[in-house]
């Protein structure tokens, strides 16, 4: 097996009295889709926030492509190739759909203030390259017709797709998706599911948090189950589905069980 792209070691996150993530270790192989599931409050989003750099772990280590990242600021982790979507959308609502995706291209630009001021060839080339990349993504996600619409005016489902397009514009090596299908009607959920499958076929490594079990089971190579911040099972869909601790964790939760 190749070296893990993401490696989490004995990770802890303590919110005053509450241990949101407790002594968690796992790894994600390059090219894999790994799902993280668990009842609400299991610590999935907290885990994502620690990987992406929004929340500082209380202890433990995170390595990405061999680099220890758990003390780096968020933008540095993005530079290394980690992109994400958010459970509670974090799009640029006052900017257009096209601009949102062009901001996603930020890391692949070089034009600074001076070149921007002179508006020479470098700036124009970069702008048109960003625009092409953005339109290619919008096309792919059926959002190109909305390119000039203010992002805040999109439907919820479109915003989710836009956020995914923005994340992809940075050409990440690891994509963290926090509930990409939550709140979407089945058809749109399947659209997203198809996008993720296609991305993975092209080599994208994905860490996925999702409650839609149909989606989790069909997409993931490997599933990690959390409950109360703790590792309770890990393995293939079949393995996890039969695991007694997983069954009991989910029995209490009628909503998603």
């Amino acid at each position: 097996m190749s070296e893990a792209l993401l490696k989490v070691d004995s990770l802890n996150c303590q919110f005053s009295g509450l241990r949101a993530v407790a002594d968690l270790s796992f790894s994600v192989q390059p090219g894999a889709i790994k799902a993280v599931i668990g009842p609400n409050g299991a610590g999935k989003s907290t885990l994502f926030n620690m990987i992406a750099g929004v929340t500082a772990p209380t202890s433990g280590a995170i390595h990405f492509a061999g680099v220890r990242i758990d003390t780096l600021p968020t933008f540095r982790r993005a530079e290394l190739g980690i992109a994400r979507t958010f459970q509670n959308l974090q799009i640029f609502r006052e900017m257009t759909v096209l601009e949102n995706v062009m901001v996603g291209c930020h890391l692949h630009g070089k034009v600074g203030v001076v070149k921007a001021l002179l508006r020479g060839r470098a700036l124009r080339d970069e702008e048109s390259a960003f625009r092409d990349t953005a339109f290619a993504l919008l096309d792919r996600f059926n959002l190109a017709a909305k390119a000039d619409v203010v992002a805040g005016d999109l439907s919820f489902g479109q915003m989710k797709v836009l956020e995914l397009a923005r994340a992809l514009a940075s050409r990440p090596r690891l994509l963290l998706l926090d509930e990409p299908a939550a709140g979407l009607p089945q058809a749109e959920a399947e659209h997203i599911s198809q996008i993720i499958a296609d991305l993975n076929r092209d080599g994208m490594t994905v860490l996925l948090v999702e409650h839609n079990m149909r989606m989790v089971m069909s997409l993931s190579h490997d599933i990690l189950v959390l409950n109360n911040g703790q590792w309770i099972a890990e393995g293939t869909a079949d393995h996890v589905r039969r695991h007694p601790d997983v069954l009991s964790a989910y029995l209490g939760e009628t909503e998603h069980a």
Partner: peptide, 26 residues
């Protein structure tokens, strides 16, 4: 010119949603 460049968009992105801007590497 600044507004219509990568740095200008980054500025507006930060003003609109700093969490989102951080996440794309700004």
């Amino acid at each position: 010119h600044l507004l219509q460049s990568r740095v200008g968009r980054a500025l507006r992105a930060v003003a609109t949603n700093e969490i989102g801007a951080d996440a794309v590497g700004i």
